[in-house]
Design a protein around this nucleic acid. Structure first.
Lengths: 164, 164
DNA sequence: GCAGAATCATGCAGATCTTGAATGATTCTG
DNA sequence: CAGAATCATTCAAGATCTGCATGATTCTGC
C-alpha cells in the first residue's frame, strides 16, 4: 500500500502541475500513431489499411451490420464507409446484401475469406505486439490490455474480452 | 497468484489464437486516434494542433533544437517541421534563430509565451484525462501512465517522468 | 585555399485520407 | 397517397503529409 510522496514516479496530480507530457491522452495519441503505423506496414501486403481491419473487427464482433451503423461506431462519415466497404468487397472479404426488410440498408457480412484475412491480421498484430511491447513482461502486457479495454468500453467498441 | 485458465480475462496467448482485437497495437491505434481527436478539439481555440504541441514538448524537454532534429524525433518529414514552426512562430510561441556555429541550422526555442501556451495545453490535457480516463481509479491511471512510458521509452520521446 | 560533395531549411506539386453537400432510392407518417 | 425522413452513393473540396528540387552553408580531399 503506497502513499503518495515526492518520490512516487507518476503521482502527476501531486508533483506535476499538469505537463502535457504526463497526461494519458497525449501519450496515448503519440503511441497510437506509432502503433497504427507499425500495424499498417504489416497489413499493407494484404492491401489493407487499419480502417479496413477496424471495419472487419466490428462485423466479426457483431457490433454493426449496416453501413450507417459501422460509420456510427467507427466515428467516421458514412461516405467513408462506402469506400472502405467497396475495397473489402473487391478483395472478397465481405459481402454486401440489401436488407430484405429495409432495402435502403446494405448489410455487411464477413465472408469465409474475410474471416481468414482477419485471422491473418490477428497474427500480424500479435507479431507487432511482440516487438512494440518487447520491454513489457507478459503480466504487464496483460495489465495494459485490461486498462486499454477499460478505456475503450464506454466508447462502444468491442472489448478484447468479448471477442476472444 | 493466478494460474492461467479458461476464465482468465486477458490471457491472450493461451486462450485466443490471436484476434486482432486483443492486440496492444490495434487497441492502442484505436484509442490513440480517439485521444488525439479529443485533445485536438480542446486546443483548437489556441489555434494549435497536436503536432504543434508535440513540437513544443520536444523543445521544452530539450530533446531537439534544430528543425532536422525535431523531424527525426517526431518521425515526420523536415518540410512538415517547417510548416509547424512557421505557425508556432507566427503565434509567438517559438523563436527561430540561425545557429551561429552552423548557419544552415535553424535553432528553435520556446518563448516565454510559448511556455505559457504549453502550460495551458497541459491543463487542458489533464482535463481531457479526467473525462477520458474517468472509468479508471487514480491508481490505475498511474499504472497506465507508467506502462505507456515504458512503451515510449525505446522510441526516443521524452518520458513523462523526465518532464515532471 | 578551392572545387565538389554533403547538409540543412524551404517551397511546391502531388498523394492520401476524410468530410460535407447533392442525388436517388426506399421507407415512414399523417 | 403526398411529403418528410432515412440510407447509400457520388463528387468536390479541405486537411495532412511526403518527396523532390532549390538555394544557402559547411565539410572534404587535394
Amino acid at each position: 500500500m503506497q502513499i503518495l510522496n515526492d518520490s512516487a514516479p507518476y503521482s502527476m496530480a501531486a508533483v506535476a502541475p499538469g505537463k502535457v507530457n504526463s497526461s494519458v491522452v497525449f501519450r496515448l495519441g503519440v503511441l497510437g500513431t506509432m502503433a497504427a503505423d507499425l500495424f499498417a506496414a504489416r497489413i499493407e501486403p494484404h492491401e489493407l489499411k487499419p480502417r479496413h481491419v477496424g471495419l472487419m473487427v466490428l462485423l466479426d464482433a457483431g457490433k454493426a451490420s449496416s453501413q450507417l451503423e459501422v460509420a456510427g461506431v467507427m466515428g467516421v462519415a458514412p461516405s467513408l464507409v462506402v469506400a472502405l466497404a467497396d475495397h473489402l468487397e473487391k478483395l472478397g472479404a465481405i459481402q454486401r446484401v440489401r436488407d430484405p426488410d429495409d432495402r435502403r440498408r446494405q448489410v455487411l457480412t464477413l465472408t469465409a475469406h474475410g474471416r481468414d484475412v482477419l485471422a491473418a491480421c490477428g497474427e500480424l498484430a500479435h507479431t507487432v505486439d511482440a516487438e512494440f511491447a518487447a520491454g513489457l513482461t507478459a503480466a504487464e502486457r496483460t495489465a495494459l490490455a485490461g486498462l486499454l479495454d477499460r478505456l475503450t468500453a464506454p466508447h462502444g467498441l468491442p472489448a478484447a474480452a468479448e471477442t476472444i
